[in-house]
Amino acid sequence: MTEFIQHLINGLSVGSMYALIAIGYTLVFGVLQLINFAHGEIFMLGAFVGMYSALFFGFGQTSSLLGLFLVLTLSMLVCAGVGYVIERFAYRPLRKAPRINVLITAVGVSMFLQFTGQLFFGSDPKFFPQIYSPAGYWSVGSVQLNPLQFFVLGISLCLMMALHRLVFHTRMGRAMRAVSFNHDLASLMGIPTNRVISYTFMVGSALAGAAGVLVGLTYPKIEPLMGVMPGLKAFVAVVLGGVGSILGAVVGSLILGLAEEFVVGYWAPTYRDALSFGILILILLIKPRGLFGKIQIEKV
């Protein structure tokens, strides 16, 4: 039982990380119909920006909540900027190109960030400073709970709620939904689609950056290739939940996180990566719309 609850908590915390990344995927896919392969790398950049800014400001010696929020904000801002630059210089020139070309470019951008990351940060794993580490453990019965995990879970929930507010209760959010509904029609209605797409990229990238910092807090070993697998898995979560649906992305991520944690914990630890791809293949074959999908995948 103790083990079960431990796996449950771990799964939820991994799942909430995937969710923050997956939301960016689903937003970008909504407005551009593009799998932004570079999204996992933005997550990696977020972690590194967090680490370097914490070291720069000297956080990490003592646990400080203020420091964490500063680092989080900074990393979100930098990632939003990087997202803007990527969209502006790699994807916008290809707005009219066939989709396969955009896909190839996305793969290229992703690889470019991975390996320039290695060039600048070094390929060896780095230690993420413990900016905020609540002391002790909460024990409920025989179960030991790490308060940090709950704290991280709380922050990601707050971010998701903020995003929900942004998408469903602001002008820009309405424009984003319009563009994702129909790009050409939205532009005929006077919506500046390019600006909306840039904005969407920035929002998604900021969330990925936040996920980077939060992952750094819980699993303090970061390296330039750390974004590849979470990036791909977040995409699996998006497909699982239904492409284009924010709720779907969150639910899909939580399911994927839990499934991974339980399979790894109870059955086959070495098949962690194969599992999520297996889920992806099954979902695409059985229920290609995903759980909450609105968009038909195979259009004629």
């Binding site: 119909q33 593009l34 799998i35 989709r99 396969i100 896909l103 791909l232 995409f235 699996v236 497909v239 791809f277 297996g278 992806l280 293949i281 695409l284 290609p288 995948i297 195979e298």
Partner: peptide, 12 residues
């Protein structure tokens, strides 16, 4: 599947 989905499934 087509396009992006085929790409990601073959990757998988």
């Amino acid at each position: 599947l087509r396009g992006d989905y085929l790409a990601i499934v073959t990757l998988g």
